[in-house]
């Protein structure tokens, strides 16, 4: 769908170098990375809003890197909504239509559908300045999708919203993605968002792509120390929920509270896990017997991979602890962590 080859952008002090990326049709792709990594620049390069110095961007079979933004069929939604303040919600949503030659009846019924999905009907006559952040972002989404773009670029669309609107809009994004043929490409620094929405993702740093892969690959098999450090939560599992338990491959973990959904993901930070030779007598509710599979030195710390039945856990311990516990490949150990260390992450893609 989108194939980017050796893309470079030179903005003086900031550069994107050698970006190669393939995004499939109707995929929900997420681009993650720290602030200043160049995520937005890549987004704007795809949209045609910054000049590319070399490389190619193809949409399907068409080379688009030299096309002006209006000829690309790629919409963009910004964190700050960027609604046209002098136009009503209705005129904002219909803005792009006059520039597109597609049959008007089709477009109008498609837009009506968008207005329904995003519950914008009551807002149509209002001006953007009178809307809440969540409402404005819904309008921005409708406006971007109104032209039936091949690709929808989302630049941290949920970052400026109150948490209660964020969940709501995340749900809307999911629905819209399922209801359109548009490819979604979202920049975010929120892992929960990435996990809830995306199938595949990329991690970016200093203007380069560090890793591209499925969400699970990125969290469980970081390709570089940077990605490993960046994603932090290396223990990520698809789980079923039953009462206050999360069940992963037959292993039950105590969450400490009942779960609202029946399936999803749980994540545990490696530094939240305690290793011991004997089961601990303590308030810790999760205690599992496992076998050390690998010991990996990481500077001041060691990363220990432990198999509990067939479930891998990554644990971060100090050199001293490694020495005291006499851990080596094949040794038996007890993996313990508090119920509060088990982070439940909303929604799971297939």
């Amino acid at each position: 769908m989108i194939s980017i080859r050796n893309l470079a952008v030179n903005l003086g002090q900031f550069q994107l170098t050698d970006i190669t990326l393939d995004i499939k049709e109707n995929e929900f792709f997420v681009l993650m990375g720290p602030t200043g990594a160049g995520k937005s620049v890549l987004l704007e390069a795809i949209a045609g809003l910054v000049t590319v110095s070399s490389g190619s961007i193809k949409l399907g079979t068409q080379e688009i890197s030299n096309l002006p933004p209006e000829k690309r069929g790629i919409s963009i939604v910004y964190q700050d909504y960027a609604l046209f303040p002098h136009l009503t919600v209705q005129k904002n949503i219909f803005y792009g239509l006059r520039f597109h030659r597609s049959s008007r009846d089709n477009s109008v019924s498609r837009i009506r559908n968008l207005i329904d999905i995003l519950a914008l009907e009551p807002l149509l006559g209002r001006f953007p300045g009178t809307l809440s952040g969540g409402e404005q972002q819904r309008v921005a989404l409708a406006r971007a999708l109104a032209i039936d773009p091949a690709v929808l670029l989302l630049d941290e669309p949920l970052a400026a919203l109150d948490p209660r609107f964020r969940e709501d809009l995340r749900q809307h994004l999911k629905t819209l993605h399922q209801n359109t043929l548009t490819t979604f490409f979202m920049v975010t620094h929120d892992f929960a968002e990435a996990i809830a929405l995306a199938g595949r993702a990329a991690v970016m740093n200093h203007g380069c792509l560090e890793q591209v892969g499925t969400i699970r690959e990125i969290f469980q098999q970081p390709a570089s120390p940077f990605v490993a450090d960046f994603v932090g939560m290396k223990n990520l599992y698809a789980a079923r929920f039953s009462g206050t338990l999360a069940i992963i491959d037959g292993i039950s973990l105590e969450l400490g509270h009942p779960s609202a959904s029946s399936t999803g993901y749980v994540a545990i930070r490696p530094e939240d896990i305690v290793l011991s030779q004997e089961p601990l007598v303590s308030s810790i509710q999760n205690s599992l017997n496992g076998t050390v599979k690998a010991v990996q030195p990481l500077g001041f710390h060691y990363e220990i991979e432990i198999l509990v039945k067939n479930l891998p856990f990554k644990v971060l311990i100090t050199k001293q602890a490694l020495f005291d516990l006499q851990l080596h490949e094949g040794s038996e150990t007890v993996v313990s962590f508090k119920a509060t260390a088990v982070h439940q992450l909303a929604g799971a893609p297939a």
Partner: peptide, 14 residues
Amino acid sequence: SPRLESVSRSLGAS
């Protein structure tokens, strides 16, 4: 905001 112009262009306006 130049972003308003960027959005307008991405929506198909020259």
